[in-house]
C-alpha cells in the first residue's frame, strides 16, 4: 500500500516537469514584459529631440495626461466606428447564412463550397489584403477604372481622401475577413439546438421567421454574446488593416488611426511612459470584456 502511494507520487511529479517549458517561456516572454510594461507606465520616459528625458517616477501622471487628452477618446472613437461598420453586416449575414445552412427544409446545395469560400478571407494576410485594397482603390486603380467604364462615375473617386470612404473600406475589409468565421461559430451553436423544438413549432404552424426569432435567437444568446465580445476584443486590437492602408498615418486627418496604431507610434518614438499607460488601459478594458465572456460560458456550461 505504501509502495503504491509513493509510486503515484513519483508519477505525479511529472506533472510539474511537463509544465516547465510552458511556465518558463510564459514567465520570460509574457509575464515579465507585462509587469515591466505596467512598471513603465509610472515613469516619465521619452525622447525630446536628441535628449532623453527620465526615467523619473511620476506616479499616475501618465494616466492623468492620457485620459485628459482628447487624443485617446478620438482614437478610441475611430476604432469603435470602424469596428461597428464591419461588425453590423458581419453579424447580420452570419446569422442569415448560419440559419440557412442549418435549415433542413431548405436543403441548400454546395454548402461545402460556400463555406470554403466565405472562410477563405479569414486566412489571408491582413497586411497583404490591405495593400491589395490600397492598390485596387487607388485614384487610378482598377475599381475606379471599372466604375468609370460602367458609367457609374464620371471621374475617379478619391477613396483614400474622404473620412467616410476610408473608414468604410476598413470596415468592409474587416467584414469580408470575419463573417465566414462568425458564420461557422453560429452554425455550431444552431446545430446544438434541440431539433424537437423546431418540429413542435412547425406542427403548431409557426413560420420560419417566427421560428428564427422565437426559438433560434433566444437559445443562441450565449454564443451571440461570445461572438460579440470576442469580436469587440479583436476590434480593439485593430492594427494591420488601417496601418498598411494608410501607411501608419491614419489619414485622412487621423480619422482612421486606431488605438493600437497610436500605441505603435509611442513604441516607435520610444515614449515608454505614455506607451505603458496606454497599454495598461487597453489591458484593463480587455480584462473586463474577457471576464464577461467567461461568466457567460460558465453560465452555459452549468
Amino acid at each position: 500500500m505504501k509502495q503504491k502511494k509513493s509510486r503515484v507520487v513519483r508519477y505525479n511529479k511529472w506533472g510539474y516537469i511537463f509544465l516547465i517549458p510552458f511556465v518558463a517561456v510564459y514567465l520570460i516572454f509574457q509575464l515579465t514584459p507585462l509587469v515591466s510594461t505596467i512598471w513603465n507606465s509610472f515613469f516619465e520616459n521619452y525622447r525630446s529631440g536628441l535628449k532623453q528625458i527620465g526615467p523619473n517616477f511620476i506616479g499616475l501622471a501618465n494616466y492623468a495626461k492620457i485620459l485628459s487628452s482628447g487624443e485617446l477618446w478620438r482614437y478610441a472613437g475611430n476604432t469603435m466606428i470602424m469596428w461597428i461598420i464591419g461588425f453590423v453586416p458581419q453579424i447580420f449575414f452570419s446569422l442569415l447564412l448560419a440559419a440557412w445552412f442549418t435549415d433542413p427544409s431548405l436543403r441548400l446545395k454546395g454548402q461545402r463550397f460556400f463555406k470554403t469560400v466565405i472562410y477563405l478571407p479569414n486566412l489571408i494576410m491582413a497586411s497583404a489584403f490591405a495593400m491589395l485594397f490600397f492598390t485596387l482603390f487607388a485614384d487610378s486603380g482598377p475599381v475606379n477604372s471599372i466604375l468609370i467604364n460602367l458609367h457609374l462615375i464620371a471621374k475617379p473617386y478619391k477613396w483614400m481622401s474622404h473620412v467616410a470612404s476610408t473608414r468604410n473600406l476598413i470596415g468592409l475589409m474587416n467584414f469580408v475577413m470575419w463573417f465566414g468565421n462568425t458564420t461557422i461559430l453560429l452554425m455550431a451553436g444552431m446545430m446544438g439546438i434541440d431539433q424537437s423544438l423546431y418540429e413542435a413549432a412547425e406542427v403548431d404552424g409557426a413560420t420560419s421567421t417566427q421560428i428564427f426569432f422565437r426559438i433560434t435567437l433566444p437559445l443562441l444568446r450565449p454564443i451571440l454574446v461570445y461572438v460579440l465580445i470576442t469580436s469587440l476584443i479583436g476590434g480593439l486590437q485593430m492594427f494591420d488593416v488601417p496601418q498598411i492602408l494608410t501607411n501608419g498615418t491614419g489619414d485622412p486627418m487621423r480619422s482612421t488611426l486606431s488605438m493600437i496604431m497610436w500605441l505603435n507610434k509611442h513604441l516607435y518614438s520610444k515614449n515608454y511612459g505614455m506607451g505603458g499607460a496606454l497599454s495598461v488601459l487597453l489591458f484593463i478594458i480587455t480584462a473586463v470584456l474577457s471576464i464577461i465572456v467567461f461568466k457567460f460560458t460558465q453560465e452555459r456550461n452549468s
Binding site: 511556465v23 515579465t32 507585462l34 495598461v280 480587455t286 474577457s290
Partner: peptide, 23 residues
C-alpha cells in the same frame, strides 16, 4: 495552473509589446 492559463488566454500581445521589446 489550469485557472491561471485560462485567465491569461485573452491577454493581447500588443499590451505587453512595450516590455517585450525592452527585454
Amino acid at each position: 495552473m489550469f485557472t491561471f492559463i485560462l485567465a491569461v488566454m485573452m491577454i493581447p500581445t500588443q499590451v505587453t509589446a512595450l516590455g517585450f521589446i525592452q527585454l
